[in-house]
Simulated assay, not measured.
Amino acid sequence: MRVSSPILHPYADGLVVATKVGVTRPSPGEWVPLGRPEYLRRLKVERIGLLQLHRVDPQVPFADQIGALRQLLGAGGVAHIGLSEVDVVRLKAAAAPDGPIAAVAVELGITPAQASLAWLLRRSPVILPIPGTRPVAHLAENVAAGEVALTDGQFARLSAVGA
């Protein structure tokens, strides 16, 4: 990891750098959840030892937030991911993206939602998915899924999920 602070560099052997993402501070004393995948992926270092989702953004599907963290994990930018202040239901859901959809998403550098949409679009020329697009960022992600080219192997793995 490149670090500009002389206090932390050089690292002692075994030191793990951890940080949290998922909130922004628009003004003093105000913390707002921010879990959009493009925000979660904007690391400005080569590698983080532990990246924790500090708050779940209620405006962004939880699977998309976990998917963005898993992409960083799969790309090697993060050694471990963690969650703060989540309930058991979300903790179990976070473990579930380890399946074929999450794996294909990591392989292609896209969100699990985009992988699912790409599969639907390839499955049949007469299928027109209508995914939820509350924020504009979701609209852009959903439209981008139309450009995703799944390999035959990826398509087969995704098809097996629903079989």
Rank of each mutant, 00 (worst) to 15 (best):
L73S: 13
S4I: 13
I48R: 07
A103N: 06
D98W: 07
R36I: 08
A149K: 09
L72M: 12
P6K: 11
A144I: 05
G22M: 05
V89G: 11
A75N: 13
I127A: 07
V16G: 00
R41P: 02
P100G: 12
H9Y: 09
A137G: 09
L150K: 02
S4Y: 12
R2S: 07
Q114D: 12
L40S: 03
N142Y: 03
L120G: 08
P28V: 03
V89C: 08
L158I: 09
D64T: 03
A103Y: 00
S124I: 12
L150I: 00
A68R: 11
A102W: 00
G22N: 04
S124W: 12
V136M: 08
V88Y: 04
P135R: 01
T19V: 15
A118Y: 03
R25S: 04
L72A: 09
P125N: 14
A113H: 15
V86I: 08
K20S: 01
R122T: 04
V136Q: 14
Q114S: 07
E147W: 10
V143I: 07
R42C: 15
R55Y: 03
P61L: 15
V45W: 14
G74I: 13
P97V: 03
I66M: 15
V86Q: 02
L69G: 02
L34W: 13
V126W: 06
I66H: 14
Y11V: 12
L108W: 09
L117M: 10
P135G: 02
R42F: 04
A93K: 10
H80Y: 15
K20T: 00
V16N: 06
V136I: 08
V88W: 06
A145T: 01
A79H: 12
L43S: 02
A93F: 14
R41E: 13
I130G: 05
W119L: 14
L69M: 07
M1G: 05
V60L: 10
G162D: 14
R123S: 14
V60T: 06
P112M: 01
W119C: 13
W31R: 10
V16D: 03
G109Y: 00
K92A: 14
H138L: 13
V78Y: 00
P61Y: 12
V78W: 01
A68K: 15
S5G: 04
L121G: 04
K20H: 00
L34M: 11
T151R: 06
H54W: 03
H9T: 07
L43M: 05
S4Q: 11
G109H: 00
L108N: 04
Q65K: 01
L121Q: 12
V16E: 13
G49A: 05
V21P: 05
